[in-house]
Design a protein around this nucleic acid. Structure first.
Lengths: 247, 247
DNA sequence: CGAAAACTTGATTAGCATCAAACCAGGTGG
DNA sequence: CCACCTGGTTTGATGCTAATCAAGTTTTCG
């Protein structure tokens, strides 16, 4: 689960934007460019594509796209966390996985398929929207990109498998400990982590929100978690790992 | 979840094999050729590649490859069912998904990565082993193949997501009903399904084998399942769907 | 035929869901 | 500024489901 740590604080979105070819500069300056899809392109290459890339901002709860929608674009996450979720046949919603900085979501679009899940912002989220046709064009010119896309798919699959083995089994406490460990991967400043709502935790771990709440309370008592505000907590990693060992 | 139904009974493996270029014929005659990776090739194309493709048979419990092994080949399943499984950090084994006829497993190998899970035969299994280098070569000559591979990845991802939403939640009975529905996709002659061991069922649904056994007993009482022998049962689909509605 | 493995069934217990009530923070309007 | 309301949260009491422990049975295989 190697997500690059964000050593440089994210700069506010349009900062340093030149008046003439704004998107090129935004792309050149983008703090995640080297991890992103067209990271290998030089300024000339960017110049060619930047008109088609939209940068968007979503507030918590807003939907990037919904399952079954025609897949017209993929999205690179520049900041924030979003959740991929799906309704079961019986109508219950389940969160399948999370996506954070440098992740690429909506890959189905590349294949001309409909989206397989809803993508919903958990925090404020900044993304780049890359239209499907652009990907198509680029794959033709630069077959190397196909390999990069395959790696993205494999990463998503690894993630899904990890959720099944680590987050969808064991006691409520165990699941919650693993979840907090997972969340630490998405923490921007170190050991200060984003806390999902209890509803969200429940939908990730298949627990009721009451059980999620109790588990959080217990972790606070154990000194694993120090809640800063309702969406943010300081994590004592040593104690977390200690607690995980005891199982 | 559209797996092509097996209208034609699988023929025994080496039947109709000519003495001179055996593998070419085996490939030409292969009942799943149109669904498989090189399905678009003509006889001349097959001639070129067939020397490198090995057809292998595995007995229940045998391991095709193990997680962390260097990925040197992908496998097309010609018959039988195999399970992809993984050990959790805590050491418990979990079955992530199944693979059956026409599925391609071990895609990680294409990327030069190690395998992400163990692949183990559940029933007797026939597979074609396709070396990584062959895929590489083919992608160069025929970039169309890359797209086909991406679709395979997406299919695996859809499968993983479906397991999370449908098989990893709800009561033991509900999970078991969904599992039987899933298994019906792998049934060769219609409504006669392969029954995993209770251990395997447990590892798929995160239940103990005792609970799995009780659930099977209940389904027999309800007339949903008529066990033929210990690895095989007749399924009453109407009653299964009825039972699923009641939830 | 005998031993091992897989399966079934029962009794008890632990853990989570459920139901219910109180609490808290943020936002609105008087 | 405060009273009020709303949505998320916490905590408690109770019941149900599945885990656990324990025989006993059937199947498989040498």
């Amino acid at each position: 689960m190697s997500r690059p740590a964000s050593v440089v604080p994210l700069r506010p979105f349009h900062e340093g934007l030149s008046p003439y070819n704004p998107q090129t500069h935004v792309c050149m300056e983008c703090s995640i460019r080297q991890f992103a899809l067209f990271g290998a392109l030089d300024e000339a290459g960017l110049e060619r594509i930047h008109h088609h890339i939209a940068d968007l901002r979503f507030e918590p709860g807003q939907v990037l796209y919904a399952a079954e929608d025609a897949g017209t674009a993929v999205y690179t996450v520049r900041s924030g966390v979003l959740r991929m979720e799906r309704s079961s046949h019986a109508g219950e919603r389940r969160i399948l996985r999370l996506a954070g900085r440098t992740d690429l979501v909506g890959l189905e679009a590349v294949l001309g398929q409909t989206y397989a899940a809803d993508a919903v912002a958990c925090t404020a989220v900044e993304v780049c929207r890359i239209p499907r046709v652009m990907i198509d064009e680029f794959i033709r010119d630069q077959p190397e990109l196909a390999r990069d896309l395959m790696k993205r798919w494999q990463r998503a699959l690894d993630d899904a498998d990890e959720w099944l083995t680590e987050l969808a089994r064991g006691s409520a406490r165990h699941r919650m400990l693993r979840l907090v460990l997972k969340l630490s991967e998405y923490s921007d400043p170190d050991n200060l982590i984003w806390l999902p709502t209890r509803q969200e935790m429940g939908a990730m771990l298949d627990l009721t929100f009451e059980t999620a709440s109790r588990a959080v309370s217990q972790m606070r008592k154990d000194g694993i978690l120090h809640v800063v505000d309702s969406r943010c907590a300081r994590l004592d990693m040593a104690r977390l790992l200690e607690a995980l060992k005891q199982e």
